[in-house]
Design a protein around this nucleic acid. Structure first.
Lengths: 230, 230
DNA sequence: GTCTATACACAGATAGAC
DNA sequence: GTCTATCTGTGTATAGAC
């Protein structure tokens, strides 16, 4: 599967995402007309990502956000009870996007090697599709609330676990080499993150997401696949 | 070379680092007595790293820093003209530590394979030795000044360049496989960063810095070394 | 060199007109 | 639903005593 095919299956518009957030947070959102609310939420998220990617969420003032969205301070506060809650909404939804999709991707029933490829590439493609959400949740993970911290740590662990398990199963079947699979899984995650953390670098190098994902798979296979005895 | 040996060659105490900073910034530091200044600078840096690793530099207030160092607000401002300058001092010095040491490490004259190993492991060991500086410079890179941004981008590029060149030379000599060396170099950097960005994970897994570095070298060799024809 | 007290700007948040 | 005007706390930074 390449990125284009992946996109067809998994893409949802930023409008659809805004709608999900609206439905999940009807309690704290004072605006009741769906069309208006969804519209403005979309503007708000776009603006937060834009500003926060430059100076971080903490350094973003509500006045910055007001300027960028074109909405007044008063209006903004009808969409969340405070800046803290805005952060929470974005983070929670970011993790839910990842969780839902990664689960779907890793539920494929294939042989070990194919499954490894699917999961590795799927994660990269997903981060490309929802890049602002991935970038934001990673960079703002420090300023997370204790309640949500648990979720985040669990998430980090579980995605690594998925990879480690695939490597373990493959080893049992004689497809992959024995080794410290947790450690290898961590390395794979690091390379996956590279894509959304340093995207500017690869744009400059003219490297597409497909090339990047294939390169990554190549590295992992070279290290993990059982070498044929000459 | 393992970490213990590396440490003997490259380590300098946080006191020595504070002294370097003092000598480099005599103009903006109002305290003239070396012993006092170095002592307090050491306290200041330790405290900044401690607080910033939890909530980020932007979110750290000068009152936080005052509390943590045990110094008064007034005293702190005798060591830098403002919070912005404090950030600049730390970042500039962080990059200079990296630059100086990485240059020294990569100046070794060995064959391609040995050089690759030396440079990869050296970077990991260096990040272990000066972890707070590495972590801080990475995480606060966003809030960097335009003037320093140039330095940072150049640094990121040049360390990647070093790796790419080693791979290129090795390819010419028939030691390494042909391929997109820039891309591979980026992947290696990503895995190196993993060590100082997610150190808690590896502490939990009981993975030592030597194990981590060896694992990383193993992955790179499996991918880059020319396979023996069977 | 270090402290306390304070000036001043700006942040987050709200009230109430339209 | 959106706006303007405003409250109140907190942040950075400084003045001046010791």
């Amino acid at each position: 599967m390449n990125y284009k095919e992946f996109k067809k299956l998994y893409a949802s518009s930023s409008r659809d995402i805004a709608r999900e957030v609206f439905l999940n947070n009807k309690d704290s959102i004072q605006i009741k007309k769906e069309k208006t609310a969804v519209n403005n939420l979309e503007k708000i998220f776009d603006s937060v990502f834009k500003i926060a990617s430059k100076k971080g969420f903490q350094a973003m003032s509500m006045r910055d956000l007001s300027r960028e969205t074109g909405m007044s301070l008063g209006s903004l506060y009808h969409y969340f009870t405070g800046k803290e809650e805005l952060l929470g909404i974005i983070q929670t939804h970011g993790w839910s996007i990842m969780k839902r999709n990664l689960k779907q991707i890793s539920d494929t029933h294939e042989d070990s090697l194919r499954k490894l490829r699917t999961v590795i590439k799927g994660h990269v493609f997903l981060s490309e599709l929802y890049r602002p959400w991935f970038y934001f949740t990673f960079m703002e993970a420090r300023s997370i609330q204790p309640a949500q911290l648990k979720v985040v740590k669990a998430m980090e662990g579980s995605t690594q676990q998925i990879l480690a398990e695939i490597l373990g199963c493959g080893e049992e079947r004689g497809v992959f080499m024995p080794g410290n699979h947790e450690l290898t899984a961590g390395m794979i995650k690091a390379m996956q993150q590279e894509w959304y953390l340093k995207r500017w670098k690869y744009r400059k190098l003219n490297v597409s997401v497909d090339q990047f994902a294939d390169h990554l798979v190549g590295i992992v296979e070279a290290f993990c696949l059982v070498r044929e005895t000459g």
